[in-house]
Each structure stands twice: as structure tokens, then as C-alpha cells.
Amino acid sequence: MELIWQGTKQAILLLLRGDPEVLGIALLSLQVSGTATLLSLLVGIPLGTVLALTRFPGRNFAMSLVNTGMGLPPVVVGLFVTIFLWRSGPLGLLELLYTPTAIVIAQLVIAAPIVTGLTVAAVQQLNPRLRLQLVGLGASRLQVVWLLLKEARLPLLAAVMAGFGAVISEIGAAIMVGGNIYRQTRVLTTATVLETSKGNFDMAIALSLLLLFLAFAVNWALTWIQQRGRAS
């Protein structure tokens, strides 16, 4: 208990002092996972909408893939992204391995199926006859999609939160494709592992607290937007 108490005290001091190293790591985490989440929305929302609203051969198979992808182990993603980005790999020429971009790519692969799957669920929970009604009021195909997504915005925000939550907290992919390089690819989770292994519990606790705070702050903001939509 003494360890936790001392560690927490130190951690709070570190944070209050605004330790540049800790803040730098936190900022990078936010940038990388935020970018990955945004990109996963660009992929997942259109894909999920198509899966939810259309019928085509192989749709069930595609849905199964997406649903499996929602539980993709980050380590597996890390492994395959590493292989792809490896110097002699298919995308080796891009020299992306051990850069923040590599982490963004890996986290995008983790978050995209989650956003896609939850988008499908969000759109499918709408009254199926609403679509016909919108067409019957003269909505074009794009207008229908836009209005349906607007109707589904509350569960869609849940998809955003789930996607961000998954990538900000993962470590397997970040450590494999990023390499946990000091001041380059060290993010909150990889740094926490490193500091813990070195026995720097105060630093590790500070990083963990920041991670929790970031996750909380982002989700709080999203929840606020979501629940404002429910007001009155």
C-alpha cells in the first residue's frame, strides 16, 4: 500500500509540475489515437451504413468478418502491420515502421471494425420503415443516408467512444510497430510498461493517471454531446 501511496503522491507532483516528458507522451498518445479514431470513422461509418442498408450476396460473410474484427487482438494487428511495413515487406519502401504513422495505421486497423460494427447496429436499430417514409417525402439517396445517420447519432457517438477507447488503451500494436522510441513513438501505454519494468512506479502511476484522465475527458465530452441530443 505504501508503494501505491508514495507513487501516487509523486505522480501528482509530476503532473502538477507539468513535467515536459510526461506531457509530451500524453500529447503524442492523444494525437496518434485521435487520428486513428478519426480515420476509422471515415472508413467505418460509410462501410457500416452500406452494410446496414443494402442487401448483396456475401453480406452475411462481410458482417461476420466485421464482427470478428471487433475483437481483433492488438498484438496480432501489430504483427501483421509490422510485417507489411518491414524494410523488405510489401510497404517497406515507405519507411514507416517505428514512426507515429505506423501506430496510427495499426490503431486504425483495430478501431475500424469496431466503428463499422457499431454503425451497422446503430443504423439497424432505426425503424426500417423510416427509410421508405423519407424516400416518400422526396429525399434523394444521399439525403436519406444523411437523415438516417442523423437519427442514429446517439448510438453512433457510442461507436466513436468505443473506437477511441479501444485504441487509446491498447499496447500490443503500439509497442510492436512504434517500438517505444523515446520522444518519437513513446505513448502512454508503452511508457507505462517501460517505467513499471524499471521500477519507476511514481512515473508509471503518473502516466496511468493521465491515460485514465484522457480517456475520461474524451468520453465525457462525447457523452455530453450525446446526452444533449436526448434533452427535453
Binding site: 425503424n127 423510416l130 429525399a139 439525403q143 442523423k150 437519427e151
Partner: peptide, 30 residues
């Protein structure tokens, strides 16, 4: 052609928003 017609179904199928948002919906689409 559809924009020269309008449908009402058994369920009201209103969108989330005010009554005014709903009544003006088709006009805004046009």
C-alpha cells in the same frame, strides 16, 4: 417524379427534432 408526390403511413415516422423541423422536412429536401 417522387418529389411531386407525398406519402403518409400508419406510423407517423417523425424524425428527431421539433414539429416544425418535421413539417418543413420535405421542403428542406427540395
Amino acid at each position: 417524379l417522387r418529389r411531386r408526390m407525398a406519402s403518409v403511413f400508419q406510423e407517423p415516422l417523425l424524425i428527431d427534432g421539433t414539429v416544425k423541423d418535421n413539417v418543413s422536412l420535405g421542403l428542406r429536401l427540395r
